[in-house]
């Protein structure tokens, strides 16, 4: 009988554990260093005026009101456009569409789209929305571009959430004479909503951080007014930060750090919300 090299396997196990641990510490360490750097630079800059002021040539008078308003309006339009399309497409593909080769092909392509660099979406948006549809570098063009960017994420999340609903629930509903639509809208969709919401919030946090596609479609780096309608020009927080970091004066770097803190907090809040919603929903629905 061959003896199992137990002691050697055990030491390999230990070595691997420490290697993995050191990489984790390394990754977290970098993050911590970055956070400390940003907070030490920017936290003092955050005050009421920073939120309220328009951007300015003078760093100490500059604020993020236009960037914040632009970002929130952009998110609003993006959600209004992408949510219904993404959710309905996900429901169709999972519940209604035939499971044939074409469906497989579409499924793979949607997953691939979720991984396409965002700047590519920017180029598409520039051609399609800004130039062909003549929307200009407006909020609505930005929202449409971001919608394209997050649609695949929403579709995939919706499909996954719907796939996780057990067939026994569908059977139970059909068995009582419910139609496909009744079953989907009253049983399957509510049961999948927790997962769908989580996906949506993650998609939205992705949209918040995007800069590249918006720069490509021509979002302005300096907007001295708050957008009032979908056809207005706009800027967003990441673009504002990008703008500040490219200035030579040190005071603008402080502004950028403060902007990053605000952006981080918003993303953090959204992710927290996603986790909260998921936990709350899964507690209510455990199938």
């Amino acid at each position: 009988m061959k003896s199992y090299p137990y002691t050697s396997a055990k030491s390999t196990d230990k070595v691997f554990k420490y290697i993995a641990l050191s990489f984790t510490v390394f990754a977290l360490g970098i993050l911590v260093v970055l956070l400390i750097d940003i907070f030490s630079k920017g936290i003092a800059r955050i005050n009421w005026d920073f939120f309220r002021n328009l951007p300015s040539r003078h760093a100490e008078k500059s604020g993020i009101i236009t960037a914040l308003a632009g970002m929130l309006s952009l998110l609003f339009f993006t959600i209004v456009i992408a949510l219904p399309i993404g959710i309905l497409a996900g429901i169709y593909l999972q519940e209604y569409g035939k499971k044939n080769r074409l469906a497989k092909f579409i499924e793979i392509n949607i997953s691939n789209l979720a991984g396409v660099p965002s700047v590519i979406y920017g180029i598409l948006g520039l051609t399609l929305f800004v130039r062909i549809l003549k929307l200009g570098n407006s909020l609505i063009a930005g929202a449409l571009t971001l919608s394209l960017l997050i649609l695949p994420i929403i579709i995939v999340a919706t499909r996954e959430a719907i796939r996780a609903v057990p067939d026994s629930l569908r059977e139970g509903s059909y068995g009582m004479g419910a139609t496909k639509w009744q079953t989907t809208s009253k049983i399957v969709f509510p049961a999948a909503l927790g997962g769908i919401l989580t996906g949506i919030i993650l998609a939205v946090s992705r949209a918040i951080g995007e800069t590249a596609p918006l720069l490509v479609i021509g979002a302005l780096v300096y907007v001295p007014f708050i957008p009032e309608g979908p056809k207005d020009q706009f800027t967003t927080l990441p673009i504002q930060i990008f703008n500040w970091t490219s200035r030579p004066q040190a005071a603008f770097i402080v502004n950028a750090a403060a902007g990053i803190i605000v952006l981080l907090l918003i993303t953090f809040l959204l992710n927290g919300l996603a986790i909260y919603v998921r936990n709350k929903w899964y507690k209510k629905i455990k199938y």
């Binding site: 057990p166 059977e171 509903s173 068995g175 009582m176 509510p190 209510k284 199938y287």
Partner: peptide, 16 residues
């Protein structure tokens, strides 16, 4: 038909 012919399944499947 399914309203007139009800069905109970092997595993209890109450709706959430």
């Amino acid at each position: 038909l399914r309203k007139r012919v009800g069905m109970v399944f092997q595993k209890p499947n109450p709706f959430p």
